[in-house]
Design a protein around this nucleic acid. Structure first.
Lengths: 224, 224
DNA sequence: CCGGATCCGTAACGATACTG
DNA sequence: CAGTATCGTTACGGATCCGG
């Protein structure tokens, strides 16, 4: 059975031939916060049929965008992870995700709508200029609208993981809309300016640095 | 009939709820090279059903991403055009299009595959730093793998249109892969270096400037 | 000719049940 | 846990037709 294609010699068309089908890009997004098991994916992607998920990961693996890895014992389990090509794709999704974020500013979270902090945090984290974090090592616990995720900064490497950190340096408690607005701010606000909308527990110096990393980001004003 | 939604409070999911269905983003791409009539779209998007195209443009219009405009008389016709929100979306597609471009480098154009120069040129044109073109006014006729499109630079404004220009300042004859590689080059090559792969007729100074605009672009090495 | 609408066969998707 | 099998529903593709 041949794969459906737009049959156009065009970068966008070819991208969509590969990853334009339903759910595919959300699987990629899911793997941006670290390797995941099949059931992790099924759990996060509410509404996807298990059969369709299996077909998607198989296709993504064949296309070299994700890889299936066996976890070291005694985990006795396997995980899916992004390949370098998959990470490049993930980076290319950032502007599209931010565009969606800007356009949903006006309307709050809908009742019954699924939500995980890492879904947004993985994209906001890519805005941090890695070269601005050399020598820095910090574990930042976020709680966005009550959903927990961790931003880890380790000397130029920035990662996001779901859930709770063991010993976070600071804890940031805020809402998604506030956080997103921060990345578009341009100049970093002071802690007191945002104290009403962002509650931060822990080292104030690190907190202020975080505000600067997010607001004076790599893209400057390049994105809408 | 309710619209299908991923039901996730996430920028990427919301984007895909809006424009993730088949053909939708290609309609947006098509309008990046100027307003188009319904039949222009149907002609460019080979394989789309006329019924589906009508449904897509209607939905895009309802979502405020495109607008239907009546052409001044005696055209007696209507065109679709991007709204400001639609243009922001188009800008957000650039990295995805470039990602596809990079990953199709290895394989040439497939036999029977549709191709239009403006499909690629609209994305490459966004790489040009507008502030680097202040005071510049130039009409550049491209012929990429024999398909014609025009790049117009007018004092900070950069536009791409399909087809032939009336009085181009220079004519650039090259292939898509060469042109794409140029944007990833970093430092601009000299005219003699690329003379084998890019044939340029007209003012050499303008030609050299064009090479510089495309290679030292806005994103630097930010994109893979 | 342009700008669609209608109809119908096929492919993709969603939900549930089932299995190694 | 990591999928496969089945089946009803929705979306898409191609053709034809229709009003301005």
């Amino acid at each position: 059975m041949a794969r459906r294609s737009y049959n156009q010699y065009c970068g966008l068309s070819r991208s969509l031939d590969l990853v334009g089908e339903r759910w595919t890009l959300l699987i990629v997004r899911e793997l941006m916060s670290g390797p995941k098991r099949y059931s992790d994916l099924a759990d996060a992607l509410d509404g996807i049929g298990t059969s369709l998920l299996a077909a998607r990961v198989k296709q993504l693996e064949q296309d070299g965008l994700i890889a299936r890895r066996q976890l070291p014992r005694p985990a006795a389990s396997q995980v899916y992870d992004l390949t370098p090509a998959g990470r490049e794709l993930a980076a290319a999704l950032v502007p599209l995700a931010l565009w969606g974020l800007r356009h949903e500013f006006d309307e709050p979270r809908r009742p019954g709508e699924n939500y995980r902090a890492e879904w947004t945090l993985v994209f906001l984290a890519t805005l941090i200029d890695p070269s601005a974090t050399t020598g820095l090592r910090a574990t930042i616990q976020f709680r966005l609208d009550d959903s927990p995720a961790v931003l880890s900064i380790d000397d130029g490497e920035v990662h996001v993981t779901p859930g709770e950190a063991d010993h976070p340096d600071i804890v940031v408690n805020t809402g998604l809309r506030t956080l997103a607005a921060l990345t578009a701010a341009g100049s970093p606000p002071s802690l007191t300016e945002v104290s009403e909308r962002i509650r931060i527990e822990g080292d104030p110096a690190l907190a202020q640095l975080l505000l600067e990393l997010l607001s004076r980001n790599r893209f400057g004003g390049l994105l809408g």
